[in-house]
Amino acid sequence: MEFRFFQVDAFTNRPFGGNPAAVCIADQLPADEVLSRIGKENNVPMTAFVVRKNNDFILRWFRPDGGEAQLCGHATLASAHILWETGMMLADEEIRFHTIAGQFTATKGSDGWITLNFPAIGSEAATDTTLLAVFPTAVEILQAGVERTLVLLPSEEEVRNFNPTHELLQSYNCIVTARADADKPYDFVSRFFAAPHGLTEDPVTGSAHCVLAPYWAAKLGKTTFNALQVSARGGELRVALHGDKVALTGQALTLIDGWFRLPE
């Protein structure tokens, strides 16, 4: 079996920025065990598998630990980018992805930025206060869905300078955020740590902004944002809250174009 393979930097317009994703375009999906092993082999933050189904596409995401992800923004953005770049879809055509989390759409603007339609994820005050030992200056600690913890810090500087080596953080998928400095062209900053899923730090996390959009909408009294994930690689997003949906908009750049070959 062989299929097209690409590596894309998502939520950036420069090489080695944003979040790398592998994108595999196949006629049919291998067995789940093989998908898991390919995710491990690629060893990037996410591998996306895309298969055409009539006029739509089936999309699945696998992490470098071999587990299947329930939601992934940057690999979805990368997949849409490849479908347009290879001519499998025309630039003015909407892409519909069928995933384990539901159906999502992708559209391409005249400026080349790609917009994903994702679900909004609410948050509430966390009953687990363990992370206060990791973030003693935290303004708020909230639970977002069943998997993620959201931590509000007092300043952009604290988010940027946080060192994710505390052993307690190894048990949490943690979004850390703060309002941006007043002189900056973005509204808030964030970082995302996902040690339970094999990622000490995820460079740019689209799905985390499904949590951040409704959170900052309530805080700032508006629904459109410029966001910056301040990891070492860094990434820019335009984020908009529309009821129970979040529009995630970003750029992508292809760095590797080739074939993935599996012996029969």
Rank of each mutant, 00 (worst) to 15 (best):
I121L: 02
T129L: 12
M89R: 12
L90M: 13
L131R: 03
S123Y: 01
F104P: 03
G102L: 10
D111C: 00
I100K: 12
I114R: 03
G102D: 03
W113Q: 03
T107K: 15
S123C: 11
I114D: 02
P119H: 07
E93K: 10
A101M: 06
N117R: 00
A106H: 02
L116C: 15
L90D: 11
N117M: 02
G112Q: 01
Q103Y: 06
I121G: 06
D92P: 01
I100N: 00
A101H: 08
T127K: 08
M89D: 00
P119M: 02
F118N: 15
F97H: 01
A125D: 10
F97I: 04
E124A: 11
A101R: 05
I95D: 03
E94C: 09
L131G: 13
D111L: 07
T99L: 04
T105R: 13
T107G: 07
M88C: 04
D92Q: 15
D111Y: 14
D92E: 14
L131A: 13
A120M: 05
D128K: 10
M88R: 11
R96A: 05
F104I: 03
T105N: 11
L132W: 00
A91E: 13
A120E: 07
A126M: 10
A91G: 07
N117P: 02
T127Q: 09
T129D: 15
G109C: 06
A106R: 10
E124D: 04
N117C: 08
D111Q: 10
G102E: 04
I121S: 05
G102V: 13
A101D: 09
L131F: 15
L131T: 11
Q103I: 08
E93T: 00
A101K: 14
T105W: 09
I95M: 10
G112I: 10
L132R: 13
L116P: 12
F118E: 15
H98Y: 15
A126I: 04
K108E: 13
R96M: 03
R96E: 06
M88F: 03
G109R: 07
T105F: 05
G122L: 12
A101I: 14
D128Y: 02
M88T: 09
P119T: 07
F97E: 00
G122H: 08
T127G: 07
A126R: 05
T130L: 01
I121N: 04
E93L: 11
A91M: 03
E94A: 13
F97M: 02
